[in-house]
Computed example of a mutant assay.
Amino acid sequence: MSRYLGFIVVAMAVMLPVQALALNAPEGRVLLVVSGKVEHTNVGDEAHFDKAMLEALAQHETASRTPWYDGVVRFSGPLGRAVLDAAGANGEHVRVSALNDYAATIPVSDFEAYDVILAMQADGKTLRIRDHGPLFVIYPFDTHPELLNEEILVRSVWQVNRINVE
């Protein structure tokens, strides 16, 4: 009997990481859909995230000057790499799209090299659509001033609602 119990314990230990990677279905309004080369899905072949799911991911805060706001603004939200990890992304680029269909291609390496966030708040206030929300790609411009250039600025998509992993 103890031999079977040992087998069950080992089998459960092997299965636990797979279960931990499962993505729960969103319970609230979906703010972000991640599609394309993703392994962890919860609606068809896509990963849908509501506000609570995004807030449960690794969060980051950056205080930075941007061309879109006056002065230094404190942005907060999940790290881009945390969102990609949660979806099991396996690509080299992501196509980030906004509510108005604007889109930009961002190398996944940006998310690995820098603490790029999908800002959900600015100065402690939830980003509404009229405030560039619900999600805004924010690079750490103040800690990496070399990022404040046209190539990166076009990647700073606001009103983000979709990421396609390519």
Rank of each mutant, 00 (worst) to 15 (best):
Arg3Met: 09
Tyr4Met: 09
Leu5Ala: 13
Val9Ala: 10
Ala11Arg: 10
Ala13Thr: 09
Val14Cys: 12
Met15Tyr: 11
Leu16Cys: 12
Pro17Glu: 12
Gln19Lys: 12
Gln19Gly: 13
Ala20Cys: 15
Leu21Tyr: 12
Asn24Phe: 12
Ala25Thr: 11
Glu27Asn: 12
Gly28Leu: 09
Arg29Cys: 12
Val33His: 05
Glu39Met: 09
His40Trp: 09
Asn42Gln: 03
Asn42Trp: 02
Gly44His: 13
Glu46Tyr: 04
Glu46Trp: 05
Glu46Ile: 07
Ala47Met: 00
Ala47Pro: 02
His48Phe: 11
Met53Pro: 01
Ala56Trp: 08
Ala56Arg: 08
Ala58Pro: 12
Gln59Tyr: 04
Gln59Pro: 03
His60Lys: 08
Arg65Val: 07
Arg65His: 15
Trp68Cys: 07
Gly71Gln: 07
Ser76Gly: 14
Gly77Trp: 04
Gly77Tyr: 00
Arg81Asn: 10
Val83Arg: 00
Ala86Glu: 00
Ala87Pro: 00
Gly88Ser: 04
Gly88His: 07
Ala89Leu: 05
Asn90Thr: 14
Asn90Asp: 15
Gly91Ile: 06
Glu92Arg: 13
Arg95Trp: 09
Val96Cys: 02
Ala98Phe: 02
Ala98Thr: 02
Leu99Trp: 02
Asp101Leu: 12
Thr105Ile: 15
Thr105His: 12
Thr105Tyr: 13
Pro107Ile: 08
Ser109Thr: 07
Phe111Asp: 00
Glu112Thr: 10
Ala113Asn: 15
Asp115Pro: 03
Asp115Lys: 06
Asp115Leu: 05
Val116His: 01
Ile117Leu: 06
Ile117Glu: 00
Met120Asp: 02
Gln121Trp: 08
Asp123Cys: 11
Thr126Ala: 14
Thr126Asp: 14
Leu127Ile: 09
Leu127Val: 01
Arg128Cys: 11
Arg130Leu: 09
Asp131Gln: 09
Asp131His: 11
Asp131Ala: 09
Leu135Tyr: 00
Phe136Cys: 05
Phe136Ser: 02
Val137Tyr: 01
Ile138Pro: 02
Ile138Phe: 04
Tyr139Glu: 00
Pro140Met: 06
Asp142Asn: 08
Asp142Ile: 02
His144Thr: 09
Leu147Gly: 02
Leu147Asp: 01
Ile152Ala: 06
Leu153Lys: 06
Val154Ser: 15
Val154Leu: 10
Arg155Phe: 05
Ser156Pro: 06
Asn161Gln: 13
Arg162Phe: 06
Arg162Glu: 14
Ile163Asn: 02
Ile163Leu: 06
Val165Phe: 02
